[in-house]
């Protein structure tokens, strides 16, 4: 009888742990889902539902190497936009303007978490603190 109760408790506990996941997972999901909404509102018109961009006019967001190499600059690009900048993505050159967003660091972090973990990218959570740090070094 006692054994059955213990076994039952263990079972319930393991179900709870499995369904909740770790605190980091929860944090990732919060950033990612928030980012998905913001992406739809602010980025998707130009960069597309699949991050595919538009021909040679608007760069795609599928170049994982570009995202990794320019990790520190991503927050600045999202926040301040680009003016006449030359960007090489997926081996193609893009020259043009991107509008500024001027949004709180936490929203930039959400957008970046979404982009860097969608469209074939997998870079983990970009936190609000990381963004605040990056923004200090904008060129």
């Amino acid at each position: 009888m006692k054994f059955k109760i213990i076994a039952g408790l263990v079972l319930i506990l393991s179900v709870i742990i499995a369904s909740c996941g770790s605190a980091e997972d929860m944090e990732f999901k919060r950033y990612y889902l928030g980012g998905e909404q913001l992406y739809k509102q602010r980025c998707q018109n130009c960069h597309g539902t699949k991050g595919e961009g538009l021909s040679n006019l608007i760069p795609p967001l599928t170049d994982s190497t570009f995202l990794k190499t320019n990790k520190k600059q991503l927050a600045c690009i999202v926040n301040n936009g680009l003016k006449g900048a030359l960007v090489v993505v997926n081996g193609k050159s893009f020259v043009g303007d991107m509008p500024a967003n001027n949004i709180p660091p936490v929203d930039i972090a959400r957008i970046l978490t979404y982009i860097t973990n969608s469209f074939g990218n997998k870079m983990g959570t970009v936190k609000s603190e990381d963004v605040a740090l990056s923004l200090k070094d904008c060129k």
Binding site: N45, G48, L54, I58
Partner: peptide, 15 residues
């Protein structure tokens, strides 16, 4: 050409 809103979607579809 400098349209930030619906034009990129329109011309992605027009392509």
């Amino acid at each position: 050409t400098t349209c930030p809103s619906i034009c990129p979607i329109m011309h992605r579809n027009m392509l």
